[in-house]
């Protein structure tokens, strides 16, 4: 946690004004906190309320009823687009997309970063620059080519297709993250190891990898949350029972004119949001670091 600044901005004035300023600060913080927490609080409460209660009192309100039933309905009984198996199959679609895509793109990115940082060759800096261009590419630019390529590879509407897309797209990020981290490993360390006869992979295993946990955590968290939350590719390159959870959620909650079951839908929304939220709660520091690096390059 960052050390608080060594001055007390509010200390500039007398004690009475100081107290008043403190009051203002905390009031504002609380008001904003309300704005941020409200949506989460509402869905959590609604996932336990029965439908008559919600219909009578509106979505925003304290529960007059309580049941855990809606979570189980949302998980494996609720009907989404014709099949009544709840959100579970889509949840596992997402899992089987996110896990391989994250592991592969992070592993390959780490090795790439290691090459680009520690085994430079003529032109490697230029190649690095070109690779990072992938970071900027808007998804819309690659939709039609991907549709074609997936067709050629026979991966249309499969989880493997989405894994491929996310690996290729994620490579630019993971390579960038790892390369920028590995350049800070002293060259002498690598040189000494080479003099001792260690080769490319041995140096990676024995020297670089043990120094890597911080950047690997950042990269994994970044890839995991991004791929889990991704929607554009998910909705275009998958359909029906193959959809990841983000696409299924839209089908479930925005779908048609049927009467909304807000309690079940709330539970489904929470199930979809839970994995990245858990990652955020337990890896907040690394989450923020990845975000800053990913957004600012």
């Amino acid at each position: 946690m960052a050390e608080a600044a060594g001055y007390d901005p509010l200390g500039a004035a007398g004690t009475w004004r100081h107290q008043r300023a403190k009051l203002v600060v905390y009031t504002l913080l609380c008001l904003f906190a309300l704005y941020y927490v409200l949506p989460l609080g509402v869905v959590i409460l609604n996932s336990f309320r029965d439908l008559p209660d919600i219909n009578r009192n509106g979505l925003i309100g304290l529960p007059h009823s309580f049941s855990l039933n809606y979570w189980s309905l949302a998980w494996d009984k609720f009907c989404v687009g014709g099949t009544c198996a709840g959100i579970e199959p889509f949840f596992f679609n997402s899992v089987s997309m996110v896990v391989p895509a994250t592991i592969i793109s992070t592993a390959v990115g780490a090795v790439n970063g290691y090459v680009l940082a520690k085994w430079r060759f003529t032109g490697s800096e230029v190649l690095f620059g070109l690779m990072t261009l992938g970071v900027f590419m808007p998804g819309q630019m690659v939709l039609l080519p991907w549709a074609r390529v997936l067709g050629w590879l026979g991966l249309t509407n499969t989880t493997s297709g989405l894994v491929l897309i996310h690996c290729v797209q994620g490579l630019s990020f993971t390579t960038l993250f790892c390369r920028n981290y590995y350049v800070n490993i002293p060259d002498d360390l690598i040189k000494a190891a080479r003099i001792d006869g260690a080769g490319f992979w041995r140096i990676f295993r024995k020297i670089v990898l043990p120094l890597s946990p911080p950047i690997l955590i950042v990269t994994v968290i970044w890839q995991f949350t991004n791929i889990w939350n991704e929607f554009l590719f998910a909705v275009i390159f998958s359909s029906g029972t193959h959809q990841p959870i983000t696409a299924a959620l839209i089908a479930l909650s925005a779908g048609g004119t049927s009467v909304h079951q807000y309690n079940v839908e709330s539970a489904a929304v929470l199930i979809a949001a839970l994995p990245p939220l858990l990652v955020y709660v337990f890896g907040g520091r690394y989450f923020l670091r990845g975000l800053t690096q990913g957004a600012l390059k």
């Binding site: 946690m1 600044a5 509010l10 941020y36 889990w228 959620l249 839908e265 949001a273 990652v279 907040g284």
Partner: peptide
């Protein structure tokens, strides 16, 4: 930055929307 108490808590509250997908945010 006014040396408030429970700084980590405030930051966690203000930042969590970033971890949630646009789909979830938009739906809610």
């Amino acid at each position: 930055d006014q040396r408030v108490r429970a700084e980590a808590l405030w930051r966690t509250i203000y930042l969590y929307p970033l971890a949630v997908s646009f789909v979830v945010t938009g739906t809610v």
